[in-house]
Design a protein around this nucleic acid. Structure first.
Lengths: 349, 349
DNA sequence: TTGAAAGCGCTAACAC
DNA sequence: GTGTTAGCGCTTTCAA
């Protein structure tokens, strides 16, 4: 054995990387043995193990995950594609996902698509190129189905489900019903909706549930009382339009809390009292909803459950076993707070 | 040329991975040539290039980034370690960082430390094991310096600077001064502070600036008017304590907007009018600050600039060139909105 | 138990 | 211009 090369001398910043080979040499064993020790692949004699351990410590050896992945074909990375990490709802879901994955030794590659299908495409491509083990995705709602077909990595949709693909979503339809039933029980009959965009699946579902609940009472949503548009504070401001009707609405359902907050703000500016003059209900239950005064009545999504279930489903898919169900529905919960009240001066029923 | 193997038949989910070798065979060229074509490492004849291109398309070949990294010693991954992605300020910075890195072909590994030094340690270790090209880090403030020393990857601190290490931070000291000067100009003399924790560097800096501005007027912050604690809504609630003094404060400086929002909420509950009875100023300028009524006067941090500068600095460090400066200061900006006003009934000056 | 050696998919020398 | 080949750091047969 020649002494050529010498042990890990450190120069400059990136100190000479120490490899499993260096460890083997120093411990006087074969690289395979070090590997076995590291992974418990095969039994290693206690004495040998000790020497290996010492060598690792002395050299400050750290296994190279990339090289490991090349052989094992597992990167222990999952991609997380979402429309906007600054959106508090997505951020909370992202956090739950990151934590759940991390507990299983999987790291999260953050991909912010800005709700842009093209950017989403590039991210998907990059993730595939990295051979990530799987992908969790809150879709822009405009992801071509063919693109998903071509992925040779398991993809689980979160929050915004996609027909026929593994999805973990809140029972949005039920959520919509909860919102409607709550307002109806308070005597409201003329209800406006700040709706969101039709290509976002959960918006459609919430609306469907909402309409169904109205229909059960023989009521229906008048098209003029529905304001579509991207879910944002600005859409919330449109609440003003719903009040300029000849027969204005007495309650408003916003399909998410951001929109509801926008409406809340506008109403305050306009001097419309909530819930005195108008009841307001949102969806999601982001932290901010609790803070407003009056606090916002809303349909709560369990972000933690959403994230954990999505991570778990993805892990199952990666594991290869076809799981029992590929569509997981997380129950929503009505949070009655201060922004909704019985219809003023109404005849009721 | 034998037909053995045949073209990419897809079976099951993970379709037989097609490698550069397959492409080479199909195009009837050497792997080196394919590589050259892919990377522009060496000129490739137009005719050859065309055949390679065709083969790539036909086979649906996608270069394996992992294998590539193993040779090139560049993963094109940066780690992003932060205390809590659900915190709107961190989320906005994270978004700016992700976008800036992405534009340079670098992907972001999200590591949420939950402000926990131990979790932070494991994340740092994982990132090192992955041989990420660099790390951007919003430290828990309790990261042992030795840990950072051991990293053989460039680390850039964001938002919370660390003495003697590459950092990109808002000029927090100046920010603190801006806040104080604003309140002083409005005639306030007795000012309370909802402070945060001393191990967070930017809290210290903001406080120092705040104190310095007071001192210039011959004033000083009385210890009893300073409430320390983790920056959260709950700390904001403590504003009540500042009002129970024999000579209560007329203005309050919260070292971040979350705390300010907590205070705002508490004050509303208590029937204390803002800014009529009490002026309130925050720090950060998160989206929510604009939405409250009255909107919150605050010291704005430019999250976009912070993120971009941090990404740029990290990229420079990775490139190897020692950049001009390793401590970048982003200027803050006072946003005067509705939550501060001239001291009521004060004698002024 | 342990050692030797063959790759994982790709890049980078170096020949031709 | 293009082909060949030696690794990058690791796991995983297969022998010994």
């Amino acid at each position: 054995v020649s002494a050529a090369g010498g042990p890990a001398r450190r120069r400059g910043r990136p100190r000479e990387a120490v490899t499993i080979k260096d460890v083997a040499r120093r411990a006087g064993v074969a690289v395979g043995t070090v590997s076995n020790h590291l992974n418990g692949t095969a039994p290693v004699a206690a004495r040998t193990a000790l020497r290996v351990k010492r060598a690792i410590l002395a050299l400050g050896f750290r296994p190279h995950m990339g090289a490991r992945s090349l052989r094992s074909r597992r990167t222990h990375i999952a991609g997380l594609v979402l429309p906007n990490i600054s959106n508090p709802f997505f951020a909370e879901v992202a956090r739950a996902i990151e934590h759940a994955l991390w507990e299983q030794g999987v790291q999260t590659m953050l991909c912010d698509s800005s709700q842009d299908p093209e950017r989403e495409r590039v991210h998907l491509e990059n993730l595939a190129g990295r051979r990530v083990d799987g992908i969790l995705m809150i879709s822009s709602g405009r992801t071509p189905s063919a693109r998903l077909d071509r992925m040779d990595v398991p993809v689980v949709h979160v929050d915004r489900g996609v027909e026929g693909r593994p999805s973990v979503v809140t029972d949005n339809r039920l959520g919509g019903e909860l919102a409607a039933d709550h307002l109806l029980a308070l005597g409201h009959r003329r209800i406006g909706v700040l709706a969101g965009e039709a290509h976002v699946s959960n918006v459609r579902e919430r609306l469907a549930g909402f309409r169904a609940a109205l229909a059960r009472r023989g009521l229906s949503l008048r098209e003029q009382d529905l304001v579509p548009g991207p879910q944002s504070l600005e859409l919330g401001h449109e609440v003003a339009r719903l009040l300029r009707r000849s027969r204005p609405v007495t309650a408003v359902f916003a399909t998410n809390d951001i929109v509801a907050v926008g409406a809340w703000r506008k109403l305050l500016e306009l001097g419309v009292r909530v819930p005195g003059d108008l009841s307001l209900i949102g969806f999601d239950d982001i932290e901010m909803s609790r803070i407003l005064l009056p606090p916002l009545t809303t349909v709560r999504q369990d972000k933690e459950a959403l994230g954990r279930a999505a991570a778990a489903l993805l892990l199952q898919l990666i594991g290869g076993g076809r799981p029992r169900t590929e569509r997981i529905l997380v129950p929503p919960r009505l949070m009655v707070r201060g922004s909704t009240a019985r219809r003023a001066g109404g005849a009721g029923g």
